[in-house]
């Protein structure tokens, strides 16, 4: 498994990225930037890049992060592993990825319940239509809202 036509983020998607647009312009958070991390084949490297991501965020004194991915299947391992590494540093973390009826998690953890589904198709499947299941501005607002609640619950911000 990998990245199908309906979830893949085109160059145009990155150019107009709704997640960056929403989070960077919200006056209630101090936006730090985007960490771009790949999905290696090798298991040792999968764990390593997740750990390195968590170290970056810890050094940046990050309170909360939103992780998103345009693939599903094998890449769930990277996704959940990176969420766990970030969570273990005491940083609030929520996720956004395609789940639908087709892409249940390959691996589960305490973090999977904080992952929002970006599926838009009625069938809940990889429809092979470009743009059909991409993350949009509504998904970004939902994730940022959830992160704000989670940061409060986790004691990242004074109540």
């Amino acid at each position: 498994m990998g990245i199908g036509p309906s979830t893949k983020e085109t160059t145009m998607h990155h150019f107009h990225d709704p997640l960056v647009r929403v989070v960077a312009s919200d006056p209630d958070v101090d936006f730090q930037g985007v960490i771009l991390v790949g999905t290696p084949q090798d298991n040792y490297l999968k764990n390593l890049v997740g750990r390195r991501t968590a170290f970056w965020l810890e050094a940046m004194r990050t309170n909360g992060a939103i992780i998103s991915a345009d693939g599903w299947g094998n890449s769930d391992v990277d996704f959940i592993n990176t969420m766990t590494e970030i969570g273990d540093k005491g940083i609030s973390i929520v996720g956004l990825k395609f789940i639908g009826k087709q892409a249940g998690f390959v691996v589960e953890s305490e973090h999977t319940k904080f992952v929002l589904d970006i599926n838009k198709s009625k069938s809940g499947t990889e429809t092979e239509i470009v743009g059909d299941n991409n993350l949009n501005e509504k998904d970004a607002h939902k994730a940022l809202g959830l992160l704000k609640l989670k940061m409060r619950k986790d004691g990242q911000v004074p109540k």
Partner: peptide
């Protein structure tokens, strides 16, 4: 609160 986005 300091917030970052992680894109895999």
């Amino acid at each position: 609160p300091k917030v970052a986005v992680v894109k895999e």
